[in-house]
Amino acid sequence: MELQQGIFILMGLAMIIAAVLAMHVKDLISSIIAVGVVSLFASILYLLMQAPDVAMTEAAIGAGLSTLIFLYALHKTKDVEEEND
């Protein structure tokens, strides 16, 4: 039981650190990746909490797709400048 709790605490700490990083790094790409990492850890926590359906969804949609959409958006708000001068 101790081990299980330890894993949870560790994961939780990792998520918190990732979240803080996401909010505090200047670079937006890193920020987005960090949020993706938070989601990824979340999906592992879901798995550990006997919620495999949620875990899959979080991994595929929350961590994967969502991150990608953020990246695309970031991309758009950078290079529009070049296109529409």
């Binding site: 996401a22 987005i32 949020v35 938070v38 926590l45």
Partner: peptide, 19 residues
């Protein structure tokens, strides 16, 4: 974008709590 990221983190947090 960061504000939206913030909201995404909040959402993740709420979802964790729910599960």
């Amino acid at each position: 974008i960061k504000i939206i990221l913030g909201l995404a983190i909040v959402e993740t947090g709420v979802q964790l709590v729910m599960v």
